[in-house]
Computed example of a mutant assay.
Amino acid sequence: MNLLRVISAPISRIFIALIFVISGWNKIFSYTDIQGYMASMGVSGELLPFVIGIEVLAGSAVIIGWQTRLAALALSGFSILSAVIFHMDFTDQIQFIMFMKNLAIAGGLLLLVANGPGAYAFDNRHRTQ
């Protein structure tokens, strides 16, 4: 069981954070379209560099386990905020699913905040076993 715990920690970090890293990179290559979408939802397109930074930098930090609790907390808040701003049309089933997906991701990230990064994380490099 201990081996499962050791292996599942880094795999879990990768799985939960990869969506942010990929999404952030995709926003770079669709910058104008994303700015337009944000504006259509009442959010200033000037915030897009901040959004990209949070997704790519905090997502990467969670993956490698560096400042994991802080990065996971930031991404959790980002997920909840995104759900509330972009996915509140519950008459549209896809938007409802997207809202619930964001909440589920936020919940998983909060588990990282509570429990730390687990094995194979930069946060553990100063610990002696």
Rank of each mutant, 00 (worst) to 15 (best):
G45E: 00
S8N: 13
I54H: 07
L70P: 09
I7S: 10
Y37N: 13
N26K: 14
R69N: 01
A9C: 09
L73N: 08
G42M: 07
A61T: 08
I34E: 14
Y31K: 00
L57H: 11
Y37W: 13
N26C: 08
W66P: 08
S8D: 13
F50E: 08
F50L: 10
A39P: 05
L57E: 08
A58P: 03
I28K: 00
F20R: 15
I7G: 09
I7M: 15
S40M: 08
I16Q: 00
E46M: 14
Q67L: 12
L75V: 02
K27L: 09
T32Y: 06
W25D: 13
T32H: 12
R69W: 00
R69Y: 02
P49K: 01
L18I: 15
I22W: 05
V56H: 11
I19T: 09
S30N: 15
A74N: 08
A61S: 13
G59Y: 01
I14Y: 04
L70R: 15
I64A: 06
G45C: 05
T68V: 03
T32E: 12
P49F: 00
G36K: 04
I14M: 07
Q35Y: 07
I28E: 00
G36H: 01
S60L: 14
I34W: 14
G53Y: 03
I19E: 03
S76N: 05
G65E: 05
Y37V: 03
P10F: 10
S40K: 14
A61P: 01
